[in-house]
Design a protein around this nucleic acid. Structure first.
Lengths: 148, 148
DNA sequence: ATTTTAGATGGAATATTTTTGCAAACAGGT
DNA sequence: ACCTGTTTGCAAAAATATTCCATCTAAAAT
């Protein structure tokens, strides 16, 4: 299924100058294969077979974050969610949609962040986060449902 | 100083159909007089003289939130911050600025939220939050500093 | 003014998530 | 095969938010 993501994960780690340990590769593979940001709990439960400690997950995510490999989303339930971001910076390059019903968080890739030229003098913006909260297509029942 | 905010607080509670208890009035007065959102910890330390329990603060804020009296800001350090919002809804009617150095959170009142007509079909946006993270005027040293 | 009642409060305790410390294990290079 | 700095595992701590239940109070009714 995700045979190539193994190579991709190793390559990303190599590019960032990080050691390619089995745990990190598995973690990064998981993030690469997920269509939406994952919480540490979700990651831990999906990585049980790899037997990667939660603290190690926490620290690896922390390292990834500092290297700009992942970005961190605060979805409103006091848990951070992580996703691989192609933009390579620590900031957010796109808005995020949070479903208020199912809690799912989605990256709205392809959408630019709004312009912000309206700050008071002296203020410097380093990064910005735009969260849209509402109902996803599944929860509004608008999905046509073509299987899977 | 804030003699009138006492009346204002009582009036707000009355309009919302909530009981005007001393604790709630003190809490609302504090929020009304604060230029930026406050965390529960900040509120508790500033309300020590009133001897209002932290749980009561938590519950009052929860009630205020449901009544649309306050709005809740997630500033990135996993603590909620609360501020009185004139818009009367539970959503956010303006962006928030978070200083990455001093942690201060400011309401960017007067600025409209960006348009969001670009969602996929089936998605419904109930509210949106825009956070700008960076350095405030104080932390960039851009304040002219006319005393105080 | 007294009574009544739904709602608010206090204090302790619980839940959840994040973060740290230290010793053992490992990756990557020589 | 060996060395060194990094990573991991396990236990434990921190920090914040949330719940429980008995008691008290605001505000309306008598």
């Amino acid at each position: 299924m995700h045979g190539e993501s193994n190579e991709t994960a190793i390559n990303i780690l190599y590019q960032a100058g990080l050691k390619r340990t089995p745990g990190r590769i598995a973690l990064l593979k998981l993030l690469l294969s997920s269509p939406h940001p994952l919480s540490q709990q979700e990651i831990a439960s999906r990585l049980e077979k790899v037997r990667l400690n939660r603290v190690s997950i926490y620290r690896s995510l922390h390292t990834f974050l500092q290297s700009g490999i992942v970005h961190r989303v605060e979805s409103g339930d006091r848990t951070w969610r992580f996703a691989v971001c192609g933009c390579g910076s620590r900031g957010h390059c796109h808005p995020h949609f949070i479903c208020s019903r199912c809690g799912r968080v989605e990256c709205l890739s392809g959408f630019k962040m709004p312009e912000t030229g309206y700050l008071q003098p002296g203020y410097v913006v380093e990064e910005q986060e735009l969260y849209l909260r509402g109902r996803c297509a599944t929860c509004t029942g608008a999905v046509t449902g073509d299987g899977s």
